[in-house]
Simulated assay, not measured.
Amino acid sequence: MDLPADSSEPSGEQPGPGLRADAERNRERILAAARRLYAGHGLDVSMACIAREAGVGKATLSRRFATREELINAVFADRMDAYAAAVAEALADPDPWHGFTGYVQAVCAMQAADRGFAEVLAMTFPAAKALEKRRAEAYHSFLDLIARAKATGHLRNDFTDQDMVILLMANAGVIAASQDAAPDTWRRLVGQMLRAYATPGADLPPLEPAPTPTALYRAMVRLTRSAPGPEGSKG
């Protein structure tokens, strides 16, 4: 459900210092609101809902961010920088296998900390040029990390970069389903997947305990009953 346009918004704005300051304040309010909503509800939050959370009209939101992709690009630029930095840190590790396992854990932890970013890493946004450029840079560094980890003999030769994409997609789903009832479930998933990627005898981080049957049942009930995020649509 969309909200009615804010009829109090001025029309025929004239440029000036005051207007520029107001425009910047509105932009920051919109970004802060979008970060909160995306982090808690994922990307299925409508632009109208973000405008309401920010306390601005839909017309103001449209002037600052003409499309959903533009807003996503602005909201997640810093997180994509952190994502790229995680690859660089892994490549700097003198033990490539340790760097690989640390990278997988770090990126999945980023997903767990922000549901919106969990979805961003599992999707692609061709219109968000800066976001996709940073993703591409991180991807090429990850290919280097894979090659180095395989050279240690600890990463299976049949592991491919597509396996990481599959993990990110699976992790996003686990986070969305279990974040309230069993919020650490993703750690178990990542630990088990690292064991699937490793060759026999490879050093691995301790495996996190499995969630209790009760917690998993509650997560399954929540998933069954859950409705779309605020306002439902992405428009």
Rank of each mutant, 00 (worst) to 15 (best):
F125E: 01
F125Y: 13
F125C: 01
F125N: 01
P126H: 03
P126L: 04
P126D: 08
P126Y: 04
A127V: 03
A127N: 09
A127D: 12
A128P: 01
A128F: 00
A128L: 02
A128T: 00
K129A: 14
L131T: 02
L131G: 04
L131W: 00
L131P: 00
K133M: 08
K133A: 14
R134K: 15
R134D: 15
R134E: 15
R134Q: 15
R135C: 07
A136E: 14
A136N: 07
A136M: 08
A136S: 12
E137T: 13
A138H: 09
A138E: 10
Y139D: 14
Y139F: 15
Y139M: 13
Y139V: 11
H140V: 14
H140T: 12
H140C: 11
S141Q: 15
S141D: 14
S141T: 01
F142G: 05
L143W: 05
L143R: 11
L143V: 05
L143F: 05
L143N: 11
D144I: 13
D144K: 12
D144W: 06
L145N: 03
L145G: 04
I146Y: 01
I146N: 03
I146A: 00
A147M: 05
A147W: 01
R148G: 09
R148C: 07
A149M: 02
A149C: 04
A149W: 01
K150W: 04
K150G: 05
K150P: 06
A151T: 03
A151Y: 03
T152F: 01
T152G: 01
T152M: 01
G153H: 08
G153Q: 08
H154S: 13
H154T: 02
H154P: 00
R156F: 06
R156V: 05
R156H: 10
R156L: 07
N157R: 08
N157E: 14
D158E: 12
D158Y: 11
F159M: 09
T160M: 07
D161P: 00
Q162R: 08
Q162H: 08
Q162S: 09
D163K: 01
D163L: 00
D163I: 00
M164N: 10
M164L: 10
M164K: 05
M164T: 06
V165I: 11
V165C: 10
V165R: 12
V165A: 13
I166G: 07
I166S: 12
I166W: 11
I166Q: 11
I166N: 11
I166V: 13
L167H: 06
L167R: 04
L167C: 10
L168S: 10
L168W: 08
L168N: 10
L168E: 13
L168F: 14
M169R: 11
M169Q: 12
A170L: 15
A170H: 14
A170F: 09
A170G: 13
